[in-house]
Amino acid sequence: MLLTVSTVKDTLPNLQRFVEGNLKGGVDHLVVFLDAGDPEVRAWLDDHPRVSCVRTDSTWWRGERPAELNVRQRINANVVKALLSRCGWAEWIFHVDADEILQVDREVLAAVPAETRVVKLAPLEAVSRKHWDGDPTHFKRLLGKPDLTLLQTLGAIDRPANGAYFHGHVDGKSGVRPATDVWLTLHHGVDAAKDELPAYADAERLRVLHYESFSGEDFVRKWTSILAAGPMANFRPAREPTAVALRALLDKGLTEEQAAPYLMRIFERTTEDDFETLRDLGLLVEADPRAGTHVPLEPPAGAIDQLRALLERVRDEPKRLFHPGEPAAAVEQVLDRVTAGQAGAQATDQVRGARSFLRRS
């Protein structure tokens, strides 16, 4: 089975697109950590049979909640990765954000050599426009130097580099075979020394759709959410001025109405794409994640209940041990404690009750 893990704070429509698109695009089950969320979002996730939702409140972090969102994301991803290493039914775990949707050819994935422990997904980024009628339908792919130089010469980008063409990451996303000696970062699979591991890639059939600031409204929502999530993260050089400008604007204490025109000016000057030019030059890829044909695999009996029970049991454990670079031996000790008494995927009474515990937490 293929699973994803995400730490999210988003609107219900965006999360519905995220869940439904990933299930259509090759995913069998999603683990979602709610970094914050309204009751409507949590209720919808709780009720979805192919989602395991965990609220990361004070009982999850045990008074040691990392201030940086990126650290929380990495820890949560590796908690799930570690737990799945004790579950024989999980083949791959991918770390994605709420604005990302996998497009994975499962036949290609099944043919990845057994000794290959990491798979890399190529990024496709949604074209940024002031407004889309519905979900975005056109995505940018990574370009070679000739096309990037053409776009620079036409004034569509500032310099001939994919880092200037894409507003979000250009690294794509990765999945790993669950094990305690392999770690998930935001984009890569790494070893204990945090060195990136060799990865299998197929840019045409293993990819991820990235809904990065695809509209003016989403740009405002996403960046205000990022800046409110904790200390400013490290951004790529091309995006750092945007983050600094937005922080300075938000710190002015303006009302939403007063700030709105300035936020839109920042979007127009830093993020809005020249859609017509990119389309007419044949540089865009059309994609509709909800039109995917994947039918999620049915897990072995008791498997998802087993995972949910382990997620509840690990709630009482220190989470810093799951950050990349920490000793795998310490993680194994935690796993020994939380899996004590479990027999494979057979559900005990505690396992069967795990989902209700997760909902109440």
Rank of each mutant, 00 (worst) to 15 (best):
M1V: 14
M1A: 07
L2T: 10
L3Y: 14
V5M: 02
R17N: 13
R17K: 08
F18P: 03
G25P: 02
G25Q: 03
G26H: 04
L30D: 01
D35K: 08
D38W: 01
L45N: 07
D47Y: 04
D47N: 07
H48M: 01
C53Y: 05
V54S: 00
E64C: 00
A67V: 02
E68R: 10
L69V: 01
Q73S: 08
Q73N: 02
R74C: 10
N76L: 04
V79M: 12
K81M: 13
R86P: 11
G88M: 06
I93H: 12
I93M: 09
D97P: 10
D97E: 11
D99F: 15
L102H: 02
E107R: 06
L109A: 00
A110L: 02
A110K: 07
V112A: 00
V112W: 11
E115G: 09
T116N: 06
V119A: 07
V119M: 11
A122S: 13
L124R: 14
A126T: 14
V127C: 10
S128L: 05
S128Q: 11
S128T: 04
H131Y: 15
D133E: 13
T137E: 04
K140F: 15
P146C: 05
L148E: 03
L150M: 09
L151I: 02
A156P: 02
I157A: 08
P160V: 11
A161H: 14
G163F: 15
G163E: 13
G168L: 00
H169N: 05
H169R: 04
V176F: 13
A179F: 09
L184S: 05
H187T: 05
H187P: 09
H188L: 00
H188V: 00
K194Y: 15
K194N: 11
D202Q: 02
V208C: 08
E212F: 12
G216Q: 04
D218L: 01
F219M: 02
V220Y: 13
R221W: 14
K222M: 06
I226C: 11
A228L: 04
A228T: 05
A229I: 07
G230T: 09
P231R: 12
R236Q: 12
R236Y: 15
R236L: 08
E240M: 10
A248R: 10
A248L: 06
K252N: 09
K252M: 14
G253R: 12
T255I: 01
L263I: 04
E268A: 06
E272I: 03
F275Q: 03
T277K: 05
T277M: 12
R279S: 08
L281I: 04
L281G: 01
G282V: 15
L283K: 02
E286Y: 14
A287Y: 12
D288A: 06
P289I: 14
R290K: 11
G292K: 09
G292A: 08
H294C: 03
A301I: 10
G302V: 13
A303K: 06
A303R: 07
Q306A: 05
R308G: 04
A309D: 10
L310V: 13
L311N: 08
L311Q: 03
R313G: 06
V314A: 05
V314D: 09
R320E: 15
E326K: 02
P327Y: 11
V331I: 12
V331C: 05
V334K: 04
L335G: 08
D336Q: 04
R337K: 09
T339W: 15
A345R: 09
Q346M: 11
T348C: 00
D349P: 04
Q350F: 15
Q350M: 03
R352I: 01
S356G: 10
L358V: 07
